[in-house]
Every structure is written in structure tokens, then in C-alpha cells.
Amino acid sequence: MYRFYNYEGGIYKSNVIEEKIEDLGGYILRKEKHSRELNLLFAVPEEDIDVIKEISDEIKGEIKKRDLIGTEIAVVSPSISRHHLPHPVCDIAERLRREGASTSIISTARGVGRRISQITREEKIMIEEYDAGVFIFGEFEDCILDYKKDILKEIKVPKIVVGGPQIKNLESADTYIGDVGRKTKRMRKTREQRKLDEITNALSECISKKREEIREDPLSVSPIEVKRIVEESGIHEKSDSHSPILLHLDGLRIKLPYDEYKQEVSEIDVYGKKLGEIAELRKSQRETDDIVVKIHTESYLEQVKETKLKVS
């Protein structure tokens, strides 16, 4: 199974690492050069990372495991008003991006207040397109414990909730982190930076658990391999986005209009099968109508095969 890592080090001899990653069947997801420094986000099979680490040690680089690479995270705020934006929503999203995640900010239409706060079905579906959600709540304990938690109930993806009061256990949330409620300034203080670290760690933990679940019931093809195959088909070049294909834990987001490209994408050949056969293609709830690809598990495909045999 592929794991995601980050290499930071000098450019000198870094091509050795790049070549090794490719030799091992790995993928370089992002490569950023700053003067003589190189930042590389890559994925390699878990059992092969020691080989890369050896080379990295030789050239005095550093390799860190980054669970958030290859995920798309929704940062959800109760509204788009100045009460909740830009801080702390953007501070959290920025920190998650630094850790390698792709983030989107979603503001609910009627998420403010206590009794009146609500989430629509469309908003729930939209949040569930992502691998996990970070929800920002307000300052009053009573509001969060008695009302806001209901917003989370039916959302199936991992949920990290942040808010002002210190609450030990928030029902319906995977983790609750206090002291991050309404912010009027950037989260620059050491105490606040630690809170951002806490959010990142909690989210990484949730993502690791999710990856373990996937490992127990593996996908028929790894999303990273599907991404490469879709890129080789060249269809992503029709998208205006600078990152036309985003990795999810169990699939991809292809930033092309669903109605127009669904057929073409589902016909792409993935190791002898059509993409439409090994994955479900959904229309995103986002205004851009992206194609959300959810790859089926091996067990599911086996089950379908058996059912077909019985019928015939």
C-alpha cells in the first residue's frame, strides 16, 4: 500500500531520490524548488521507504511521513460573514495545506445561531465528497452541546470540531478541540500555533485510521494509480484548473463537468477494465459539477461478479 512522504533537503543529488522513487513504482506528487532547497511530496509502497531514507540520510535531507498528502479536506464555517472569516477558517486551511492536504472552505447557508442553526441535505452531500471535515463552531458551550452537535449527526466522513469552550467529549465528533472559536486576528501566537498543530495531528490520526480501514478491505486499484492512468489519457488537459485531478483516500476528484465528460472518463481503460466498471462516478454538489470518482473495493467487485454468475 502506498504511503505519503515529504522530502526536504538540498537540490544536490536529489535526482537520485527522484529516480529511486520512480524505480520503486512510486509517484512524485509535487516538486517545489526554492533556491537550493527542494520540497518533494511523494508516494511509495510502505515497505520501500527505508531505501529512500538511506539515500536521503546520505545527502543530508529529511524525510517525514505526511498522512494528509493525497487527501481533500473540507473546512466548514457557519457563515461567510466577518464573524467567522477569514480567521480562524483560513488559518486552519492554510496549516492543513502546509501538511500536504488539499483544502476547500465551505460555508453553510444557515449554520449560525443555536436553535436556528441547520445544514441542508446538499451541504451534507457536498461535505461527504471530502475525506474529512474540520468544523468551526462558536464560543458558547451550551450552543455547541445542545444544538450545534446535531449538524454533525448524519455526516459520515471523519469530523474534527473546533470551538471556544473546553469540552471533553462531543457527541457525533471524532475529536473536539477547544480554544479555537471566533477569532478576530490571525492565529500567530505560540499558544494558537500549538492549537493548529493539535488540529493537524487529530486530523492525521483520523486519516490514518481511515487508511487502515481501507487496507483491511482494499480498493480494487489504488487512487494514485488511477490518477496516473487518467493523466496519461490526457483528458485532464481540458480542465482550466491548475490542479485538475485531486487525490482522495478512496478515489479522485476530476475537475471536469460531469454531464459533458462522464462517458469519456468512465471509458478510460484501467488494467483491462473500464473505469466506470471499477468505480462509481458521481456528480459533485459543487457548482463546478466536478466528477467524483469512488473506487470500488476488491470485495465489492467479487460480490458483483458472483451475483452475476448466479443470475446467469
Binding site: E141, G164, P165, R182, K185
Partner: peptide, 19 residues
Amino acid sequence: QDKSGNESYKEIAENLISE
């Protein structure tokens, strides 16, 4: 009655007024 809420709102009010 919400002590932590009071502290937070004091900070919010202080920041917004000073800005």
C-alpha cells in the same frame, strides 16, 4: 453564566474596538 464564553467575548470586543 458561561465563563469561558465571557472571556472569549471580552477578547473579541477588545480586539474589534481597538481596531
